[in-house]
């Protein structure tokens, strides 16, 4: 039964991807990419990766589609007919694909419990993490504790991406009077529904943030959901009013505070006599210390991801508004 669902989903995935090649309307291509992301999230759920599916649905399908649409607003939605032939790329792709398929023939059988990937490290995570860390969600304990250093690196990468986007685009504060009328200004239904929903979305983000220890969720997803709430606010009420609620300067400070919070937990545990990011030293009881450490660094991750995603959206949005004025 599960295999059948997998096959159907994979077939839909392939159709979506193939359709993306032939469509010339970039708007439709981006929408198909959103569909592709949601389909792959479904496949992840079928493969037991609930955390990954959650991230893919919120980050891959949500934020990146919004950002791509923002770019399309600036660059135009039609792709021009390409002049050079498509035979050579097709040949290269076929050869690479054949090589990869040949490679998969050597792969161990799918889903077999004795595959080499399950022999090393993973059993230790599965057996010891409940005792050592005491959290039901193993993904969270591996993410935040065993591989905490990696996650710090990822957070810094996200932060660096923000710096890159700001260096390339920058967020301009608009003069109040030359802001063009947003298409949704006179949209009463949207206003009412958005007012009703935004607090609920933020509440859900907080739930995801702090429930990540027990179920799927955590800082990455929560940050993105909170950013989505503010993106909705910006779309409905316009950029200048969103700047009044959370200004870009404040967000940039917030992004760095998140990274600093994460790193300072590491230094604090060094100060307590442990190694970098050794949470067991944060409290007298090692397990309680682990809990403190994970909650704080997840908070740091959440704050950074929220601030970075929203700032990037602001940067794209203010670009679009500026080109509207010109």
């Amino acid at each position: 039964m599960g295999d059948l669902i997998d096959l159907v989903l994979l077939a839909m995935l392939a159709i979506t991807a193939l359709q993306m090649i032939f469509l010339k309307d970039l708007f439709a291509v981006v929408m198909l990419f959103g569909i592709y992301s949601f389909l792959s999230a479904l496949i992840f759920i079928n493969l037991d990766a609930v955390d990954v599916a959650f991230t893919e649905a919120s980050v891959g399908a949500g934020i990146s589609t919004v950002l791509m649409l923002g770019t399309l607003a600036l660059t135009g939605r039609k792709e021009k007919k390409s002049s050079h032939s498509s035979i050579l790329p097709l040949l290269v792709v076929c050869i690479t694909g054949a090589a990869l398929i040949y490679g998969t023939l050597d792969m161990p059988p799918f889903g077999h419990p004795n595959n080499p990937i399950h022999e090393h490290v993973a059993p230790r995570y599965i057996e010891e993490s409940p005792k050592e860390i005491g959290l039901p969600n193993m993904v969270t304990s591996v993410l935040a504790s065993y591989r905490g250093f990696d996650t710090l690196g990822e957070t810094v990468v996200v932060f660096a991406a923000l710096i890159g986007v700001l260096a390339l685009l920058g967020v301009r504060r608009q003069e109040e009077n030359d802001v063009p009328e947003s298409g949704f200004k006179a949209h009463h239904v949207l206003h009412v529904v958005a007012r009703f929903f935004i607090p609920l979305i933020i509440l859900f983000a907080l739930y995801v943030q702090f429930h990540g220890d027990f179920g799927p969720g955590g800082g990455f997803q929560a940050g993105v959901i909170a950013a989505a709430a503010f993106i909705l606010y910006t779309l409905v009420f316009g950029l200048s009013r969103a700047f009044a609620v959370v200004g870009p300067k404040f967000l940039q400070a917030l992004a760095s505070i998140g990274v600093l919070l994460y790193a300072s937990v590491g230094f604090f545990s060094m100060y307590k006599g442990g190694q970098f990011l050794d949470y067991s030293k944060l409290a007298t009881d090692p397990i309680v210390g682990q809990h403190y450490g994970i909650i704080i660094i997840e908070l740091g991750v959440g704050i950074t991801v929220f601030a970075v995603m929203l700032s990037i959206f602001y940067a794209f949005g203010s670009q679009a508004e500026r080109s509207n004025i010109q």
Binding site: T55, V139, D150, V158
Partner: peptide, 15 residues
């Protein structure tokens, strides 16, 4: 999980 988030961050830089 982390790769997805980093992927979006790099995508935004590309855009």
């Amino acid at each position: 999980l982390t790769a997805i988030v980093v992927g979006v961050a790099t995508t935004s830089v590309g855009l």
